[in-house]
Amino acid sequence: MNLVKPLIALLAIVNPLGIIPFFILFTESFSREQKKRTILVASISAFLVIAVSTLIGADLLHFFGISIASFQVGGGMLLLISAISMLNAKTGATKSTSDEVEEAADRASVAVVPLTIPLLTGPATISTVIIYASNTHHWWQHAVLIGYGVIIAGAAALCFMAAEPIARFLGKTGINVMTRLMGLILSALAVEMMSDGLIKLFPGLGR
């Protein structure tokens, strides 16, 4: 398994830069200490979601009798939907709805829901981790994927800590450009994931 692709895919689908406007919205009335705690809880939660998906995701598929090939096709479609939304400079439809965003803005604590789930690590992220974890053959490859969870959590924490300076520097246009770029990368990975699953399901397609 190419261990670079999972990191690229996770960075593209999580896209912490694209979540900055939501972080600013949800925490605009928070004190400095409350923001620090929100960042800490959100980053740790994101890591835990990726780590748990890596360790038991494939077992869950086996328990429900779902083949990896079928999950690759379904997960690839989910990624493609997210990628199309990102190409339109929108938070993916698989991440949150407008009603969820409005409801979250009124909550005292938003670190886990909706910042971590579904904005940072939604269904598309979980699907990606499970698919790549299912293609590993050694314990150290699982360890690398879990290590990528640390990188994702760190990237999210850094973006959130510097949210206001980044928002001022990039502006809405800059963040939209970055989101579209991540969407383009993600769409290519989604097509590759779906094609790999389809070839496993229908070997004749690979001839």
Rank of each mutant, 00 (worst) to 15 (best):
L3K: 10
L3P: 08
V4Y: 15
P6I: 05
L11A: 13
I13Q: 06
I13R: 00
N15F: 03
P21S: 05
F22V: 00
F23Q: 07
T27P: 03
F30L: 06
R32F: 07
E33P: 09
Q34L: 08
T38P: 00
T38S: 01
V41P: 10
S43G: 00
S45Q: 05
A46Q: 01
V49S: 06
I50R: 03
A58C: 14
D59A: 13
F63N: 08
S67H: 09
S67K: 10
G76A: 07
M77K: 01
L79E: 06
L87G: 14
N88Y: 12
G92Y: 02
S109G: 11
V113Q: 08
V113I: 15
I117M: 08
T121D: 05
G122Y: 05
I126G: 03
S127L: 04
I130G: 01
S134E: 03
N135G: 14
T136W: 12
H137L: 06
H138F: 12
H138I: 12
Q141N: 10
A143R: 13
V144H: 06
V144I: 12
V144R: 08
I146D: 00
G147R: 12
Y148M: 07
G149F: 00
G149C: 01
A153E: 02
G154W: 02
A157H: 00
L158W: 11
F160S: 10
M161H: 14
A162I: 09
K172T: 13
N176A: 15
M178K: 14
M178D: 04
L186F: 11
S187L: 07
S187V: 03
S187E: 04
A190P: 04
V191G: 03
E192V: 12
L198R: 04
K200Y: 13
K200R: 14
R207S: 15
